[in-house]
């Protein structure tokens, strides 16, 4: 219903100054910083730049696959196939590179392409055949995993190229190479999601799919491409994970499926789509990783660790609710 009169101009101006997006992202990084500083209490070796470096390194894998997940969630989808696709990336890179650097430059694109094709299947199922994303991506995940199982006979063979393994351990201007990769990826992802026509179109599709169609946006093509990107990101994560561990396992992707969703959600995106920033997701991934490292250092059991992780997600959800921002806005507007 259009039964609401316009907000008085003055109010809107003041309210607008506090953009919820900026507040959300700033809050997340604030919490991460606070946690890192506070972790000095846990261990004297913590709380410094070296710990930041470790956290960045460890969260990089999650960040790579969470980018794709974030885009899928932005268009009101969900990608449950990424665990399997990470495994595909890892298994294929171990098998195809087979411990040699030769052919690296066509093997990597070939793997990413193969993974993207899996995403295209997801996207076509969701857009053309109207299968709910949850079911489509879950089914494709099960199928792909099963194919991996058959392809490897249960035990993945081979090793990724040694160059990649070296890369994961190398430093560049004193900073680990994967951290550079993370920074570049974060910058690129932010540009794509928040500062490109592509990102704007995705936000539009997620915000109001019917309106997007009427406005002439190629909704289907956009959605399919998003699933393809998500799968390619998962494949990329798989390649790096295999390079890091110098080998692949069939269950290597399992630890990233739920955290990828959690990182997106903790990062302030709406699981309903149409709202979210990649910087928030990166912050969410860092928050989850920081929490995990601190909890490990505390030496508390796996049980408490898991509980804390769940509690943090829940807390973030409650704090990042729109209503909280609305009341915050209302208070600030009144004070002015």
């Amino acid at each position: 219903m259009s039964d609401q009169t316009a907000i008085p101009l003055e109010d809107t101006r003041k309210a607008q100054r506090i953009s919820p997006t900026v507040v959300t992202v700033a809050t997340i990084y604030g919490i991460v910083a606070l946690m890192i500083v506070a972790s000095r209490l846990v261990s004297p070796s913590f709380g410094g730049l070296s710990q930041l470096e470790t956290i960045l390194y460890l969260s990089s894998f999650l960040v790579f696959c969470a980018f794709g997940q974030g885009l899928v969630i932005l268009v009101r989808g969900l990608d449950l196939s990424i665990a399997s696709v990470i495994t595909v990336g890892g298994v294929l890179s171990a098998a195809l590179m087979d411990g040699s650097n030769a052919g690296l430059f066509y093997v990597i694109p070939a793997i990413l392409l193969a993974c993207a094709l899996i995403g295209v299947v997801n996207g076509i199922g969701v857009t053309v055949f109207n299968v709910p994303p949850f079911i489509m991506t879950m089914a494709v995940g099960i199928i792909v995993y099963s194919l991996c199982l058959g392809f490897t006979g249960g035990t993945p063979r081979g090793f990724p190229a040694p160059v990649l393994n070296d890369f994961m351990g190398s430093r560049f201007i004193g900073i680990p190479a994967p951290v550079w990769l993370l920074i570049a990826f974060a910058a690129m992802g932010t540009l794509v999601q928040s500062f490109s026509p592509f990102g704007r179109k995705l936000t539009a599709v997620g915000n109001n799919p019917e309106a997007a169609y009427v406005a002439g946006l190629p909704s289907r093509r956009l959605t399919v491409s998003v699933y393809a990107i998500s799968a390619a990101c998962a494949g990329f994560t798989g390649i790096l994970l295999a390079s890091y561990a110098n080998g692949a396992t069939l269950r290597m992707g399992d630890d990233y499926l739920l955290p990828s969703i959690a990182a997106v959600v903790v990062g302030g995106s709406s699981i309903l789509g149409g709202k979210g920033t990649f910087l928030g997701t990166v912050g969410g991934a860092m928050l989850l990783t920081t929490l995990a490292t601190i909890l490990s250092a505390l030496g508390i059991g796996q049980g408490w660790k898991t509980i804390m992780e769940g509690a943090v997600i829940l807390l973030a959800l409650i704090l990042l609710r729109d209503t909280v921002f609305d009341s915050l806005r209302a208070v600030l507007v009144r004070k002015d």
């Binding site: 739920l258 660790k305 898991t306 769940g310 509690a311």
Partner: peptide, 14 residues
């Protein structure tokens, strides 16, 4: 989805 993801993790922890 998000809320029950959190409670699922918490229950697993307990």
């Amino acid at each position: 989805i998000a809320a029950t993801l959190a409670t699922m993790i918490i229950c697993q922890g307990i």
